[in-house]
Amino acid sequence: MVLDAVAVTAFETVFPNMSPSAGSMFGGLLLLAYASVLLTGVVPLTYVQERTADPADPSSGTEVEVEGDGDAPGEG
Rank of each mutant, 00 (worst) to 15 (best):
M1P: 15
D4E: 15
V6P: 07
V8P: 01
V8D: 04
V8K: 00
T9G: 00
T9Y: 09
T9M: 09
T9L: 07
A10L: 14
E12T: 15
E12R: 12
T13L: 01
T13E: 14
V14G: 02
F15S: 06
F15C: 01
P16I: 05
N17R: 11
N17K: 12
N17P: 04
N17W: 13
S19L: 13
P20N: 00
S21C: 12
A22K: 00
A22S: 04
G23F: 07
G23K: 09
G23L: 09
S24W: 03
M25I: 15
G28I: 05
L29G: 10
L29K: 06
L30G: 06
L30N: 02
L30F: 14
L30S: 01
L30T: 12
L31G: 06
L31Y: 13
A33K: 07
A35S: 03
A35V: 07
A35R: 05
V37Q: 01
V37T: 02
L38K: 00
L39N: 00
L39Q: 00
T40I: 08
G41P: 01
V42E: 00
V43I: 14
P44Y: 02
P44R: 00
L45F: 02
T46C: 01
V48T: 13
V48W: 15
Q49R: 10
E50Q: 04
E50S: 07
R51F: 04
A53P: 02
D54V: 13
S59H: 12
G61W: 03
E63P: 03
E65A: 13
V66L: 10
V66T: 07
G68F: 02
G68R: 03
D69S: 04
D69I: 09
G70C: 09
G70M: 08
G70N: 06
P73T: 11
G74V: 12
G76S: 11
G76F: 09
